[in-house]
Simulated assay, not measured.
Amino acid sequence: MSKAKVAILGSGNIGTDLMIKVMRNARHLGMGVMVGVDPESDGLARARRLGVATTHEGIDGLTRMPEWQDVKVVFDATSAYAHKRNSEIAIAAGKQVIDLTPAAIGPYTVPVVNLDANLDQRNVNMVTCGGQATIPMVYAVKRVSKAVPYAEIVASISSKSAGPGTRANIDEFTQTTRGAIEQVGGAARGKAIIILNPAEPPLIMRDTVFTLSQGAEPEEIEASVEAMVKEVQSYVPGYRLKQKVQFERIGNNAPLKIPGYGEFTGIKSSIFLEVEGAAHYLPAYSGNLDIMTSAAMATADRWVERTLAA
């Protein structure tokens, strides 16, 4: 099967890292066009050096290029604001859209949790870097439990790995991640927090997941979490537990009060993660970029494998 050509909208950190991943690691994808709006951006310059067609005129410039006809998949790594129009144009032209912004026009998609259920969608949303790292853990708890009334995640990333697009979308990050914790992870209520850490030297991405669950013993939760880590590592090798899962049993003598839910008794699980990047474009501390671009590429590869090989 010949490789499907892709276009990447956004020549910043995420888009450039994704381009390099597609060129090095994709099974069914090939680079078609790198698209930006700043003719002097490093991403466009790097694409040109690698022999990739480029335009600095956004999606309008892309649609005027002869390469547009051969593009099968459009990755959007611009902004939540710009994505609506980008998606409308790409879908009208019959393209598959992989959304790396927090726009969430299409269904939230986390490859190890619900990718197969969304393969018929023309636009799928990759949630956020924090969502890709933590939602598999929420789901790992949920799949062995009767209920997960509450889940909270804290994503801490190096300031140096947060470009202008990430910084402009902080509100969308928290809202999108919270929604996906509930809709994909399976928690009744979710909360998301992002921290931009200015420490020097820069720290590797760290994520903390807290869940309140009922109907499963700690041993079952621990086994499910460890199995899920291995599943995520199939496309993000730098994804790992920092330590063993920590548990606290909440009894009737001291129940927790969850707003909108009531009193909770059961198991509190604390899961501590680290995501080391593959250093394809930025240094290894940029695991937040790596997990987003790796998840997006895995999604597109699977879509092409099923759709275009038929």
Results as ranks from 00 to 15, higher is better:
Tyr261Pro: 13
Lys268Thr: 03
Ile250His: 14
Glu217Trp: 06
Val209Met: 04
Ile258Leu: 08
Glu226Thr: 02
Ala180Trp: 13
Gly186Gln: 09
Pro259Ile: 11
Glu231Asp: 15
Ser224Cys: 05
Gln243Ile: 07
Gly238Pro: 10
Tyr239Glu: 08
Ser213Leu: 00
Ile193Gly: 02
Asn253Ser: 15
Leu241His: 11
Glu200Arg: 06
Gly251Gln: 12
Asn197Ser: 09
Val245Glu: 04
Leu256Met: 14
Asn253Lys: 13
Met205Gly: 04
Gln233Pro: 10
Met205Cys: 05
Tyr239His: 15
Lys268His: 06
Val229Ile: 05
Glu217Lys: 02
Val236Leu: 00
Glu217His: 09
Glu231Lys: 14
Met205Pro: 03
Ser161Gly: 11
Gly190Val: 05
Phe210Gly: 09
Pro259Glu: 04
Gly238Gln: 06
Glu226Trp: 06
Phe247Val: 03
Ala227Phe: 08
Ala192Gly: 01
Asn169Ala: 03
Phe247Arg: 09
Pro164Met: 01
Ala168Arg: 06
Ser269Thr: 13
Lys257Leu: 03
Gly190Trp: 11
Ala223Gln: 03
Ala227Gln: 10
Pro255His: 06
Asp171Glu: 00
Arg249His: 15
Thr177Asp: 00
Val232Cys: 10
Pro255Ser: 10
Ile181Pro: 06
Ala188Glu: 13
Glu219Ser: 15
Gln183His: 15
Arg189Thr: 12
Gly266Asn: 04
Pro237Ala: 07
Pro202Thr: 03
Gln243Ala: 14
Ala187Tyr: 13
Ser270Pro: 06
Pro237Cys: 08
Ile195Asp: 04
Thr265Cys: 08
Ala162Gly: 03
Val229Cys: 04
Gly266Arg: 02
Val184Lys: 12
Glu182Lys: 09
Glu263Ala: 14
Pro255Thr: 07
Lys230Asn: 03
